[in-house]
C-alpha cells in the first residue's frame, strides 16, 4: 500500500474516532478524551516542517468544523507540528536512527521512556494551548489548569493503549551502503 493512501486512511480514522467515539464519551466535565493529534505524532521523521504544519492545520480545522467553532484545535495542532522536529532531535541524539525507521514508535524512539516523554510532552502542549485559547475566551484560570492536567493524563493512557492495539509495521531500513 502506498504510504500516501495509508496516511489518508489514518487521517480519516483518527477524525472519525475522535468525533464519533471519544467526543461522545462524557466522563466528567473536567476530562475530555483527545486522541486525534496522535496522527501528527505518527507522521514520518523525514517530513519537512512546512508541509507538516499545513497537514496539522487541515487536521485541526476538520475537527473544528465538526464542533462548529473554527480555530481552536487548528492552533493547537500547528503548534505541535512546529515543535515536533525540535523534540525529536533532542530525544534521538544517535546519528542516523531516524534514517532506519519511518515514523516515531516505541522501537524507533529506542525505548518506552523516550516515547512516553515524547507523547506526554505533546499531549500537555496540545491541551495547554487548546484550553488556554478557550480560557482566554472564557475566564477562570484554575478550572482550566486542572482540566489540562487531567485531560493530559487521559490522553497519554489512550495513546499507550492505541499503541498496544494498533500494530504498525516498522520496517528496518538499512542504509549502510
Amino acid at each position: 500500500m502506498s504510504s500516501i493512501v495509508k496516511y489518508i486512511i489514518r487521517f480519516a480514522l483518527f477524525v472519525l474516532v475522535q468525533v464519533f467515539v471519544l467526543d461522545r464519551i462524557h466522563l466528567h466535565q473536567m476530562v475530555t478524551p483527545y486522541l486525534y493529534f496522535l496522527f501528527i505524532l505518527w507522521l514520518p521523521f523525514n517530513m519537512q516542517r512546512t508541509p507538516m504544519m499545513l497537514i496539522a492545520f487541515l487536521l485541526g480545522i476538520t475537527i473544528d468544523s465538526f464542533r462548529h467553532q473554527p480555530g481552536f484545535h487548528a492552533a493547537a495542532c500547528v503548534l505541535i507540528a512546529y515543535v515536533r522536529p525540535l523534540l525529536v532531535n533532542l530525544l534521538m541524539p544517535q546519528e542516523g536512527k531516524e534514517a532506519n525507521y519511518d515514523e516515531p514508535s516505541i522501537t524507533s524512539m529506542g525505548g518506552f521512556m523516550a516515547y512516553l516523554v515524547y507523547i506526554g510532552f505533546f499531549s500537555l502542549l496540545h491541551h495547554t494551548w487548546l484550553f488556554l485559547l478557550e480560557a482566554w475566551q472564557f475566564g477562570n484560570f484554575w478550572y482550566f489548569f486542572v482540566k489540562t492536567v487531567l485531560s493530559t493524563v487521559l490522553s497519554i493512557v489512550l495513546i499507550v493503549v492505541t499503541d498496544l492495539i494498533v500494530v504498525r509495521k516498522q520496517k528496518f531500513r538499512t542504509n549502510t551502503i
Binding site: 512546512t50 480555530g71 481552536f72 487548528a74 492552533a75 503548534l79 485559547l133 475566551q137
Partner: peptide
C-alpha cells in the same frame, strides 16, 4: 518555517 507557523497561528486566532 517560523513565518509559516506565525501565519497559521494568526489565521487560527482570527478565525476564533
Amino acid at each position: 518555517n517560523f513565518l509559516v507557523f506565525i501565519i497559521l497561528q494568526v489565521l487560527c486566532i482570527f478565525l476564533i
